[in-house]
Design a binder for these strands. Structure first.
Length: 955
DNA sequence: TGCAATGCATA
DNA sequence: GTATGCATTGCAA
């Protein structure tokens, strides 16, 4: 820290509002019925800042009477603000009083907002050589940042971030913090009712700032804009300038920075204590005393002893829980809760069952002897349901808060975990014999998550597994599989929702850690109890649908494989993506210019609507432009690429589109997804969302990394081996879906082509167009390829003509010829549809079912969709089955022989590995063998292997 | 802040 | 025509 004096200016209302809404779900009401949420929230923030930063100068700034100047400029200014909540109004006098008692100066000026006061003071302080920190979450303040003035922003989940010039430059993509005003003026601010330019959002505003530097620059150069956007901006120039003025924080408020007044001195401890006591703040009093006692000069013997007393009494109360339980074997356990313990709520007679209406016996387990006895009991079971409660959703960073267990309907135990990592690890160790026991079955809902969490505590979950989410996925893949829905559907029971415990997601959400033990016990054990009950249910259903094998031999083993892959992650070359981002920025700007020139006007290239009009009406690039369902001109990638060779503008547009998408979705987004603790990217494979049986990938989605375009595939270069001893290996199935349909339909002609290793699309073309395979033209092959894919998707002449340059009747003819060439394919398709009509479902080679409720619909459109599903689902699903088998077998071989090489990614028909170079030959052979022999079909499966220093090279 | 619509990346 | 996930915009609360 430099010896420069530091001034902290607190934006009072911003923190008060923030504090108030943090408790909105659970308002703090004291015994006098006063809502103290706002005071509590504000004081917590203030003490937090003092504790962390120990400022030498501090003031708190308030608004008073609204901004006279701004209202004069624009009478709607802040007009859509709701009336200040009652809980905040009543809080203000208290906060003033507390601040006075704390000897903290309060700065207000009638007719000015806190922003202006803070702006003015910070500039004055800067002249006197101070470093100023503006304590506020409000982004508007970024305009005030200089090399001596910073924003000190509370962030979600606790903590603060400091924004200096570099942070502001990065956040707003500006060169000067002052440009934040232009940025806000352009995009507007709905909470302050700053109108902004219509149609301009965050992204467009950033683009404009980049291009024109300021609002004035934009308005002076509207000739460089395009279409609708141009019209809108030109028509709203006045509004833009007004918005900018409204967004500008004033620097000439009549207030004076008098350093001496702002010095942080010792509070009147007694007085503050008295106020807090009146408000019934206990923890806050404690916090306050600690904050000021840690400051050596401020502490007195009295305050420090009080602190100690408070601390020890709270500890005693939390450990006393263990004594209160009933008789018998549970006497050592913690509190138990039964319906009679709960505050009863009125429940409608017809409502679903809940914990309050159902008899249950849920207990928390105390530490020490109780835990030892509990584990002993646990080890005597043959089948146990468990559910981990953690501090977050990311298993790589989440800490265990507790684990719930149940092995008997209506009964269960909750084992709370200490916050201290070593102590938590010690408790985990007590449970190790259970988790690593091969003969105790483990039941859970979404076990992949629990397994990953436990893996971070060095625990491998062994033994048979039953995952209710996976079970239900096989029972009905089209439904959703979250536990609440399952409980309501199958058990007619409504569990305690997570939001009842920790609030809605968002800034105000509590951590599991903050939930009182009794509540958490109810919640967590209930989940385990319900999951156990669901298992009983689903076991039968799996049997009835004949999918136990699919369940036990594929989905469940795969869950461990996926957990391993996700924990492993993949190495990402951030620097490479950084430089790619800069290149893209330049190129996008160049392309824009060139497109506008060619078009003779400016328009929004990103809007397909405007683009269609420019290309097909103004420039008339095509005689008969293709239209989309909605009647727009189609500007889809394939339509445009067809025109690309004749028109530079098309090439530029395609590049522009690709580049913008590339930058925002991949190049800029991926580096942010790198996990700090591992330095790698860990995707999450969803095993139960794709109705066909495929996996899906998210956070980030690594199954849609570009490959088709030259620029796009550069992104793949960023995926690299873990280090120089490793190399990436990609293994992909060649034409697996076509091979499957050939095999299932027993279409000899097609099977032969595959057996002979022919290029299947060329082979199809040669037969359909009746030419020797060597003479097939590019266009013929391309059309044949389209039909081949069309068959997989459930083809129609209409769809085909949309995909190709063929007319509807030409398409029909092509399809007819195709079916003549491959008669059994046609028979197979009819057979699938018939099967679905008779049975209500279709299935894959391994019996994975998909139910098609609309297959007999009277609505032809709806029915048609179901029929296409009847054809496609078994094909896509069988391919998914096969690669899943391969993954399990490969994984097992890698583990059994302790290979250093790891499987990293799955992209539907491709697997990516990080191969330890000395193991390369072994790996190649294992991977190829396992993939090609995962499942026997009458058509050989063919796998291509490639290696490289990055994912692109390995292709 | 959350949602739908639109568009686009993959297999 | 199948199956996904995600970024952006603009509207509804």
């Amino acid at each position: 820290m430099s010896d420069q004096k530091r001034l902290f200016l607190v934006d009072a209302y911003a923190l008060i509002f923030r504090g108030y809404y943090a408790f909105i779900k659970n308002p703090r009401i004291n015994s006098k019925g006063e809502d103290t949420s706002a005071i509590m929230g504000f004081m917590n923030s203030l003490l937090d800042v003092i504790k962390r930063e120990r400022p030498d100068h501090l003031a708190v700034c308030f608004d008073k009477g609204g901004s006279v100047d701004r209202i004069e400029m624009y009478d709607a200014y802040k007009a859509n603000r709701d009336e200040t909540p009652e809980g905040i109004k009543t809080a203000i006098p208290y906060i003033y009083e507390i601040l006075k008692a704390m000897h903290i100066p309060i700065m207000v000026k009638e007719g000015y907002e806190a922003d202006d006061v803070i702006g003015t003071l910070s500039r004055q302080a800067e002249k006197e050589g101070y470093k100023t920190y503006m304590v506020t979450p409000d982004k508007d303040f970024a305009q005030l940042v200089t090399k001596n003035i910073f924003m000190y922003r509370p962030v979600f989940g606790g903590g603060y971030e400091t924004w200096g010039i570099p942070e502001v430059q990065k956040k707003f993509e500006v060169t000067e913090p002052m440009q934040v005003i232009d940025f806000l003026g352009m995009m507007g601010d709905s909470s302050d009712n700053i109108p902004g330019l219509p149609g301009v959002g965050e992204k467009t505003a950033k683009k404009f700032i980049h291009q024109f530097g300021s609002m004035e620059g934009l308005l002076a150069n509207t000739d460089q804009l395009k279409g609708k956007m141009k019209e809108k901006v030109e028509a709203n120039g006045e509004l833009g300038l007004l918005s900018k003025k409204l967004a500008t924080i004033m620097l000439d408020v009549p207030v004076d920075f008098n350093a001496k007044d702002f010095e942080l001195d010792h509070p009147d401890v007694e007085k503050v204590k008295q106020i807090f006591q009146d408000l019934e703040f206990r923890r806050l009093t404690d916090n306050f005393l600690k904050t000021f006692s840690a400051d050596a000069t401020a502490s007195t013997t009295e305050t420090s002893s009080t602190t100690k007393k408070l601390a020890s009494s709270s500890k005693a109360s939390s450990s006393s829980i263990s004594k209160s339980a009933g008789a018998g074997q549970f006497s050592l356990f913690g509190t138990s809760t039964t319906p009679s313990d709960q505050d009863s709520e009125t429940v409608s007679e017809f409502a679903r069952k809940t914990a309050e209406t159902t008899s249950h016996f849920y207990q928390s387990v105390a530490s020490g002897m109780a835990t030892k006895l509990f584990v002993k009991n646990l080890m005597n079971q043959t089948s146990v349901c468990f559910d981990t409660e953690t501090t977050g959703l990311n298993p790589l960073t989440a800490e265990l808060v507790g684990i719930a267990f149940s092995w008997e309907t209506g009964k269960g135990f909750y084992l709370p975990f200490p916050k201290n990592r070593d102590e938590a690890q010690a408790l985990v160790e007590e449970l190790r014999p259970f988790f690593e026991n091969e003969s105790i079955e483990k039941i859970g809902q979404n076990l992949k998550y629990d397994i990953k969490v436990l893996a971070k505590y060095n625990i491998t979950v062994k033994g048979k597994l039953f995952d209710t989410m996976l079970a239900h996925y096989l029972i009905n893949p089209d439904m959703r599989h979250n536990m609440d829905v399952l409980a309501e559907t199958y058990l007619n029971y409504t569990p305690v929702s997570i939001t009842q415990l920790i609030g809605k997601k968002g800034k105000n959400q509590l951590s599991m850690r903050d939930v009182p033990l009794d509540k958490l016990t109810e919640y967590a054990v209930e989940d385990a109890d319900i999951t156990l009950q669901l298992k009983e249910h689903f076991e039968k259903e799996l049997q009835e649908a004949n999918t136990q094998r699919l369940f036990n031999e594929i989905e469940v083993p795969l869950l461990r494989v996926l957990a391993t892959m996700e924990l492993e992650g993949i190495n990402l070359d951030k620097d490479f993506l950084g430089s790619l981002s800069e290149e893209l920025n330049n190129d996008i700007a160049d392309l824009e210019k060139s497109i506008y020139e060619a078009a003779g006007e400016e328009f929004n290239i990103a809007s397909p609507k405007q683009l269609g009009v420019v290309l097909f009406e103004k420039m008339k690039l095509v005689d008969k432009p293709k239209k989309t369902k909605t009647g727009q001109y189609s500007t889809a990638e394939d339509v445009l690429s067809y025109l690309a060779k004749d028109h530079k503008i098309i090439r530029d547009i395609l590049d522009y589109r690709g580049l913008s998408k590339l930058k925002s979705t991949y190049v800029d987004a991926l580096p942010l997804q790198v996990e700090e603790s591992t330095g790698r990217v860990h995707t999450d494979y969803m095993q139960t969302v794709a109705a066909t049986g495929r996996l899906s990938s998210n956070n980030p989605n690594l199954q849609n990394i570009p490959i088709r375009t030259e620029r796009g595939r550069q992104v793949r270069k960023a995926f690299i081996p873990r280090n120089d001893d490793y190399i990436l290996l990609a293994a992909d199935y060649s034409q697996i879906e076509l091979r499957i349909i050939a095999a299932l339909s027993e279409e000899k002609t097609m099977i032969e082509a595959f057996r002979n290793g022919e290029d299947i699309h060329a082979s199809t073309a040669s037969k359909v167009f009746n030419v020797p395979i060597a003479e097939v033209t590019r266009e013929q092959r391309s059309n044949a390829k389209t039909v081949n894919f069309g068959i997989i998707y459930g083809v129609s002449a209409f769809g085909l003509s949309n995909q190709t340059s063929l007319t509807r009747s030409e398409s029909k003819e092509l399809i007819d010829t195709y079916y003549e060439t491959y008669p059994k394919l046609k028979a197979y398709i009819s057979k699938q549809v018939d099967f679905a009509r008779d049975n209500g479902y279709v299935q894959t080679v391994l019996g994975r079912r998909r139910y098609l409720k609309d297959i007999n619909s009277r609505n032809a459109v709806v029915r048609g969709a179901a029929e296409r599903n009847a054809v496609n689902a078994p094909i896509q699903g069988s391919a998914a089955d096969i690669i899943k088998i391969a993954m399990i077998n490969i994984h097992n071989k890698l583990e059994d022989s302790n290979y250093k090489s790891k499987m990293l990614l799955q992209v539907h028909d491709e697997l990516v590995f990080d191969v330890y170079k000395p193991e390369l030959d072994h790996l190649k052979s294992i991977i190829k063998t396992e993939m090609e022999n995962a499942h026997k079909l009458s058509v050989p499966l063919d796998v291509d292997l490639d290696i490289g220093e990055n994912w692109l090279e390995a292709h």
